[in-house]
Design a protein around this nucleic acid. Structure first.
Lengths: 119, 119
DNA sequence: ATAAGCGGTAACGTTTATGTAACTAACAGT
DNA sequence: ACTGTTAGTTACATAAACGTTACCGCTTAT
C-alpha cells in the first residue's frame, strides 16, 4: 500500500497498514518468521501469487527495511530473504493473524450458513 | 478483500486477510474496540475515508458477521455499529497492529534516512 | 544441441478499490 | 419558507493493485 492517504491522527493502525497492508505482505512475512527463505521456495509456498507480484512485494518490503535480501553469486543464482530487525517487530501481528485465521473462518462460515439458510 | 484468491493451504493468514484485509477495515474495527460508535462519528474519526467507502466497508463487515448494525428509528436517524462476538476475536490482531504502528513507522523513517542520505 | 533450474524483467491487460458530486427523506428549529 | 442534521444512495470516474505471458542470462546435466 504505497499510496495510503490517511492521517495517522486516526490511529497507529494506519501506519501498520501502510507498511504491511498489501494483500500479500503479511503472508510473505509470515513465511519468513522461521528464518531466511529463498525466492523459489516462497513462490512454491504461496502458489497463488505470481512471480512478478512476489518480486514487487519483496522489493517494497526491502525498501521499507522490513526484510533483507541476500544474493549469493552462484550459478544458478540463489537469493534469500529474511526478516530484518524492523521486520521482526511485526511478528506479534503476524502471530495474532495466524492465530485468528482459521478460528475466524470457521465462525464466519457458521454465521453465513445461519444467515442465508435460516437454520 | 472479497475476491481473495489464495489457497489457505499457504497459511491461516490468508483467511485473516480475506476478512479484515481491506485498506480500511482494521482501522474501522479499531475504532469499535471500546464499544458502539455511530456512523457520523466514525466518519469524523477517520477523516480520509469517504462516506461511500465507509458505508460499503461497514456493510461487508456486517455481512461477514464481524459487526452488528443497530438502527434506531429516530429523526434524524441514528445508526450505531459495534463489534460482534466474531469481531471481538480480532481484537488481539488490532491491538498488535496498534502497538506496532508508531514503533515501526519511526524505525522505518530512521532506516530510510540512513539509506538515502547515508548519514 | 538441448533442456532444466534460478531469479528475475518488460509489456500489456484486467479487476478491485477508492474517490467526487449530487441527491434523498423526515423532522426540528428560526 | 428555509436551513441544518443524519445516514445514506446513485451515477460516474480514476487510480492502484494485481495478473498473464513471454522472455533473459548463466551454468550444469543429458
Amino acid at each position: 500500500m504505497k499510496k495510503f492517504k490517511a492521517h495517522p491522527s486516526a490511529c497507529p493502525i494506519v501506519h501498520t497498514m501502510t507498511y504491511i497492508g498489501g494483500k500479500w505482505k503479511p503472508i510473505i512475512l509470515g513465511r519468513l518468521i522461521n528464518g531466511a527463505v529463498r525466492f523459489g521456495k516462497l513462490a512454491v509456498q504461496i502458489p497463488d501469487i505470481s512471480r512478478k507480484i512476489l518480486t514487487e512485494q519483496l522489493k517494497e518490503l526491502e525498501e521499507d527495511g522490513l526484510i533483507i535480501r541476500h544474493s549469493y553469486n552462484e550459478k544458478p543464482p540463489r537469493v534469500e530473504y529474511e526478516l530484518s530487525e524492523i521486520g521482526r517487530t511485526a511478528i506479534p501481528v503476524l502471530m495474532a493473524m495466524t492465530e485468528l485465521g482459521d478460528k475466524m473462518h470457521e465462525a464466519i462460515t457458521r454465521h453465513k450458513r445461519g444467515v442465508t439458510q435460516a437454520q
